[in-house]
Nucleic acid binder design. Sequence first.
DNA 1: AAAGATTGACTAATCAATCTTG
DNA 2: CAAGATTGATTAGTCAATCTTT
Lengths: 142, 142
Amino acid sequence: MEFFDVLVRYEVALWNAVDRELGRQGMISLGLLHALRVVESYGGQARVQDLSCDIGITVGAASKLVDRLERDGLASRSSNPVNRRSSLIALTATGQQALASAMDVYSSAVARAVGGEDVEGLTGALQRLRARLGESGVGVAA
Amino acid sequence: MEFFDVLVRYEVALWNAVDRELGRQGMISLGLLHALRVVESYGGQARVQDLSCDIGITVGAASKLVDRLERDGLASRSSNPVNRRSSLIALTATGQQALASAMDVYSSAVARAVGGEDVEGLTGALQRLRARLGESGVGVAA
DNA sequence: AAAGATTGACTAATCAATCTTG
DNA sequence: CAAGATTGATTAGTCAATCTTT
């Protein structure tokens, strides 16, 4: 139980700190950066569902998120030739630019935040826990 | 960097899973539970600032959160005799009840989610990182 | 003036309903 | 009908401005 509290508090604190650091240096918000990284990870073939799943928000929220990305010129939808129900989302040149410069600030902020702490073991433990969560059935309809 | 991604993804996934579990069993949301626990931790003497700090939201958001708690009959403000600028927030009987029954579901959900995994070392590591974050100056005006 | 809180305008989530394509 | 996405109503957050008390 204690574990959950500590995890949540640290995650929130780290997120907010990195987000403020991005803002102070004139970059996009961490929320947007997070989204752009997911889009990039699909190599210009991301679907709304992919964002929803990888970011951990609902499909509706992901759809509106893509609206904002398009409105801000960071990404664009194009029709999927294989399946006309969905569209494919790719970064624009502006989006790639914004991603790259924000990543510099992000990387150095995270590095500074964790300091010399050995974080590899921690990362592995969190990955195991994530796999465990899937198997646990918590939050899934009986 | 990888660390940050893994941390955020796990935290979001765990939060959502526990929140769904609470909902499925007719309990208050995890966000509300989180707030009630903070209020309780101050023993009926919580200020808006305390919620803001402990939850990691702005003071404005915390003020509105307390509005909702009052509206739903879970907590109430009373005037602080020592300092009339602030008021003191305490759980109502209904709030204590809601907290207690939600905590049962919450505890068993978290326990089930982490399974047999040894989480003590992990908790300690996260606490060290949190202290480290404060010292790092990330997200603080130069 | 600073500390504590509140409010208003705006931005992002949620869920449920809906529309389109397979 | 199922899969994929969008939309509308509601709920929570952010920031900046304001009000009261110290």
